[in-house]
C-alpha cells in the first residue's frame, strides 16, 4: 500500500472506532463471551483493537516532518514569559 493511502486508512480508522464504541447492539444482551458478559468483553476487545489502531497510526502516519519543523532547535525563539 502506498504511504499516502496507508496514512489515510490509519486516520480513517479513528472515526470508525468512535462509532464502534457506541455498541447499541449488545446493550441488553445477557450472554457471555470469553467468560465475561458480552457487553464487557466487547469493550475489552475494543480496547485491544484501539492498541492495534494506534500502533498503525504511529507507524504509518507519524508527523515527524511537521514536528521537526515546529521543534527546530531547542530554545530557537525563546519568548518573553
Amino acid at each position: 500500500m502506498a504511504a499516502g493511502a496507508a496514512r489515510i486508512t490509519a486516520y480513517a480508522a479513528l472515526p470508525v472506532l468512535y462509532l464502534l464504541h457506541n455498541d447499541l447492539w449488545f446493550w441488553d444482551e445477557p450472554s457471555r463471551l470469553l467468560g465475561l458478559p458480552v457487553g464487557l468483553t466487547y469493550h475489552v476487545l475494543f480496547s485491544a483493537v484501539v492498541v492495534l489502531a494506534m500502533w498503525r497510526l504511529v507507524r504509518v502516519a507519524w508527523p515527524g516532518d511537521v514536528i521537526d519543523e515546529l521543534a527546530g532547535e531547542a530554545g530557537d525563539e525563546g519568548v518573553d514569559p
Binding site: 508527523p63 511537521v66 525563546g78 519568548v79 514569559p81
Partner: peptide, 14 residues
C-alpha cells in the same frame, strides 16, 4: 501532545 511538545521546545514554554 506531540505538537505542543514541539512548540514548547522551540519557544522554551513551561
Amino acid at each position: 501532545g506531540t505538537r505542543v511538545w514541539a512548540v514548547g521546545r522551540r519557544l522554551g514554554l513551561l
